[in-house]
Amino acid sequence: MTVLVLLGVLALVIGGCVCVVWAERGGPRWVRVVAAVTRGAGGLLHSARKGGGGNRTSGDGGD
């Protein structure tokens, strides 16, 4: 079951990347919408990772 979920997530990621490339080349409206959602999700993941990662590694001084 876990493998099927991971395959589904992988298919969504690949589909989103394809839509981003297609939208850059002037695809239809629905492709531009999917590309915008994909970019937004990527931006959210990037900012969450950037903020969370900095807090974990910054506590190495002060002992």
Rank of each mutant, 00 (worst) to 15 (best):
M1K: 14
T2I: 13
T2E: 11
L6G: 06
L7W: 10
L7V: 13
G8M: 06
V9D: 01
A11M: 03
A11H: 00
L12D: 02
L12Y: 05
L12C: 13
I14G: 01
I14F: 07
G15T: 11
G15H: 05
G16P: 04
G16F: 05
C17A: 12
V18A: 10
V18M: 03
V20G: 05
V20P: 05
V20R: 01
V21P: 00
W22I: 03
A23Q: 09
E24M: 12
R25S: 02
G26F: 12
G26W: 09
G27H: 12
P28F: 05
R29V: 13
W30L: 02
W30S: 07
V31D: 00
V31I: 14
V31M: 13
V31K: 01
R32A: 04
R32S: 00
V33F: 12
V33L: 14
V33K: 07
V33W: 13
A36T: 08
A36L: 14
V37K: 01
T38R: 01
T38N: 00
R39S: 03
R39W: 10
G40A: 14
G40Q: 12
G40T: 15
G40L: 15
G40F: 15
G40H: 07
G42A: 14
G42K: 13
G43F: 06
G43Y: 03
G43M: 06
L44T: 08
L45F: 10
L45I: 11
H46G: 01
H46D: 01
S47I: 05
S47D: 00
S47A: 02
S47K: 03
R49M: 02
K50R: 08
G51E: 06
G52H: 11
G53T: 10
G53Y: 05
G54H: 11
G54L: 08
G54E: 13
N55A: 09
N55W: 03
N55F: 03
N55H: 01
R56E: 02
R56L: 13
T57F: 12
S58D: 12
D60E: 14
G61A: 09
G61C: 02
G62Q: 01
G62M: 04
D63W: 05
